[in-house]
């Protein structure tokens, strides 16, 4: 009989710009090395995963990262008392910092995680990407952090339009002139704060790789994907696994040089010059992680085994030319369920 592991997972917002939680859980439920009881961690009462009872066994609301690590720790202690957590998989960029800070304390309580180190998390941040590229010899597009709209007027000395105007954590817009750049600056800075990142637009085709590093420089898993259907938020609604040796080489190089620990997603652009530019590094598994499971690399399962200190052999291969197509599904939910999660924060 397989051991049952209690795993808490966030990112249950399976919406048009989805969090990875539901896909991660599907991978965990497909795991062959253990059984799972899934504890959902939610921030909002309408995250669809809360109501998907065949996917998530029990959900608890947790405080927003702005409430601080003490509030989060208090809530996790309460959840742990009830659920005896073995592993937590945080899936939002914005919450990772708090969980990384609490990693030591949680470990003492017997709760394991497999997250990047604080240094890895900080240096791959989009505001630090040019230095990251230089340090690890990875091609990145030119970019600059700016703190005021006045700086937009002098950018044409270094950049040419179109430029990508990026929020500190999420969201971006392509600006073809200074007026558009100003509008994006105001919108994104109001939402995500400063600085705003201005990046040279690279014409080309967008590719992504998801993978898992063991923290010692070994790539445990790597699956490249080409987006086939992109939503207006730039998210993949359909994609296909591909056989691109160069992208795998970039991934192995990234993992071995940074000694990356945990799941990740590399966003790459193949420019018209046939070079791959690293656009962004997401320090967690992406929402399309179930494609990796579907092509033979169960990254969520491997991540849990690494978190628990098990030895995990690197995956050698994956199926090429396998697609994922996302879909929307209306669930019918009783008001009592909504009431429970909204008032007592548990369901």
């Amino acid at each position: 009989m397989k051991k049952t592991i209690n795993i808490a997972v966030s990112g249950l917002n399976a919406i048009d710009s989805p969090g990875p939680g539901i896909s991660v859980i599907r991978g965990l439920r497909d795991a062959t090395s253990f059984d799972v009881r899934i504890i959902g961690l939610s921030y909002e009462s309408l995250e669809p995963g809360i109501y998907m009872h065949d996917v998530v066994d029990k959900t608890y609301q947790v405080p927003y990262p702005t409430a601080g690590t003490e509030a989060l720790m208090a809530r996790l202690e309460y959840i742990h008392e009830k659920e005896h957590l073995d592993v937590i998989i945080p899936n939002f960029d914005a919450e990772l910092y708090s969980f990384m800070k609490l990693e030591g304390e949680l470990k003492k309580m017997g709760i394991h995680m497999f997250l990047p180190t604080m240094q890895q998390f900080e240096e791959r941040h989009k505001v630090n990407l040019p230095e990251f590229g230089k340090k690890y010899d990875i091609l990145v597009p030119d970019s600059k952090n700016i703190f005021g709209t006045n700086e937009l007027y002098t950018l044409t000395n270094e950049f040419t339009y179109p430029m990508v105007i990026k929020g500190k954590y999420y969201d971006a817009g392509i600006a073809y002139n200074v007026e558009q750049a100003k509008s994006y600056f105001n919108k994104l800075s109001a939402k995500w704060g400063l600085p705003i990142v201005v990046q040279q637009f690279v014409h080309g085709t967008e590719y992504n790789v998801t993978g898992l590093g063991d923290g010692n420089g070994n790539t445990i898993a790597a699956v490249p994907m080409r987006k086939q259907y992109i939503t207006d938020k730039g998210k993949a609604w359909g994609g296909i696994s591909i056989d691109d040796k160069k992208m795998l080489e970039i991934t192995h190089n990234f993992v071995s040089k940074t000694k990356w620990r945990g799941g990740f997603e590399l966003e790459l652009m193949k420019g018209q010059d046939n070079h791959y530019y690293l656009m962004e590094i997401n320090p967690r598994m992406p929402a399309w992680i179930y494609l990796a499971v579907g092509v033979g690399q169960n990254i969520p399962e491997a991540l849990v085994n690494l978190a628990l200190g098990e030895k995990v052999e690197p995956f050698k291969d994956y199926i090429k030319g396998k697609m994922f197509v996302r879909y929307a599904w209306d669930m019918i939910v009783d008001i009592e369920e909504f009431q429970a999660i909204s008032t007592i924060g548990e369901l």
């Binding site: 085709t205 994907m225 080409r226 086939q228 994609g239 296909i240 591909i242 056989d243 691109d244 193949k270 090429k320 030319g321």
Partner: peptide, 17 residues
């Protein structure tokens, strides 16, 4: 050699999708 082609004429290049 990686190119897949079906009898129905669907050609797939696995390198770039």
């Amino acid at each position: 050699k990686n190119i897949a082609i079906s009898d129905m004429g669907f050609v797939f290049n696995p390198v770039n999708g």
